[in-house]
Design a protein around this nucleic acid. Structure first.
Lengths: 245, 245
DNA sequence: CATGTGCATTGTTATATATCAGAATTGATT
DNA sequence: AATCAATTCTGATATATAACAATGCACATG
């Protein structure tokens, strides 16, 4: 695949085509937090954004590196991680398409508080930081939308952490399987984008136990595992374990 | 103490006195997130806020009740809690004076996501929600300050949860003692405002174990316990446990 | 082909935490 | 003073999780 083909459908490549139906609209860029921008403001924003992509495993942003701008995940999947003092990597959450990744701490620090790492081949846009700030200052409705969005993200992240915390490992594994099935892939059969180790880092347990519980679920005919594919067989039972396990 | 004396120093009672040196300035109300307001805007805000106080144990705001406004904790201490499905109460964090409590989810929902409960006798002001929204729309600098503040609060809360999660009980207890000593009371000797049960709810472990670990710390001459008073005797050792325990 | 490396897996053992039961203490109320 | 309820505390035991050890497998590399 040559360079031209690869870029044909990216945000930056379609800047010339304005109005409904262009690729930027389709990719949800505007509908996410930029709904309240005027056409002029949106165009200016679009002109100042850059497109990039990341291979699975590639680092999109590094913890403690300077914040360059707002990162909009267009296609793919990314994990937010941080390195602990004890050298263990902790996964804070998963970013899905149309998310502004790292939105949370973007106004509190000059540097990223987390690593953003692609766990699937991903495409993303970076929006100039100062331009957004300018828009906050000049467009009150936009500011409000942004506040709402950040608030939502914060709530969701806290909720997830708190829900995970109070569960034991069976409940956690069930929770995370449901999370992938319901929130991310919206199907009962999907390819796990993360290794067992990463699941462990995400739900704060050991690799061996993740493996063990998954095997247990398989033995009990709750899930089917084929390579990296997982299929939920007994939604009822899985749900029960998620709630009471 | 009669009513007049009691109210003399409250925010609402000093509305008439403008300019530097009045009680509202002193209580940090303006310096928190309202630095960028014009005098007119600030006055309008001050006129639309109500003062209240809560006895230890009293509920300031109830989970899932409608959000009335921004709650500014003037004096005292409050805990943020939520009720789990399994009936256990989980403490999300502690709010200290000059905090806007419940700032996090205030833009994402019509209802409070957490209980706000006084754990010391407290005084607080409530600022009208719609007025703040109006200010967001009309004052870009204010909007930006608010974004920064929310971002900071979110970061701090996540950080705390993540730090607690990865520790075992000794480390958690040490962490929470240090938290009260360093962040809240800024002294090595203080009255614990929370019961053992509440500590357990805060750091996600069982009451018996909190008690046990505290006794252990006392036996090892790391802390001294006298009634509700705790004094840190061996800062070094406590710090070590906090990091590696 | 041989070798190495990382990941997934399983069993065994050690450790950490929860649970249960009961005693001691405190504070509030009568 | 007596009672009650809630909290703190301690010990014994059960359970959950981590740690350790070893194997197989897939895949890359020389």
């Amino acid at each position: 695949m040559d360079m031209n083909t690869e870029l044909r459908n990216t945000c930056i490549d379609t800047l010339k085509h304005k109005g409904p139906g262009n690729a930027c609209i389709q990719c949800g860029f505007r509908s996410s937090i930029f709904t309240k921008l005027s056409d002029e403001q949106f165009d200016k924003l679009a002109l100042n954004k850059t497109f990039a992509n990341a291979q699975k495993g590639e680092i999109i942003a590094k913890q403690y590196s300077e914040i360059k701008g707002f990162i909009f995940l267009r296609v793919g999947l990314a994990k937010l991680t941080r390195l602990n003092n004890d050298g263990r990597e902790q996964i804070i959450g998963i970013a899905t398409p149309k998310d502004f990744v790292g939105l949370l701490s973007i106004f509190s620090s000059k540097t990223y508080q987390y690593n953003i790492i692609a766990i699937e081949n991903s495409e993303f846009c970076i929006v100039d930081y100062n331009l957004v700030l300018e828009l906050v200052s000049t467009n009150g409705d936009f500011a409000r939308t942004l506040l709402e969005k950040i608030s939502q993200v914060a709530d969701l992240m806290m909720e997830t952490r708190l829900e995970l915390e109070r569960r034991q490992i069976r409940g956690r594994v069930a929770y995370i399987i449901c999370y992938f099935a319901n929130e991310i892939y919206k199907t009962t059969r999907f390819d796990l984008p993360v290794s067992r180790r990463e699941i462990a880092e995400l739900i704060d347990m050991r690799v061996e136990n993740v493996v063990r519980i998954l095997s247990e679920f398989r033995r009990d005919n709750i899930i089917r595992i084929e390579g990296t594919t997982i299929e939920i067989l007994d939604q009822e039972k899985l749900r029960w374990i998620k709630m009471h396990g």
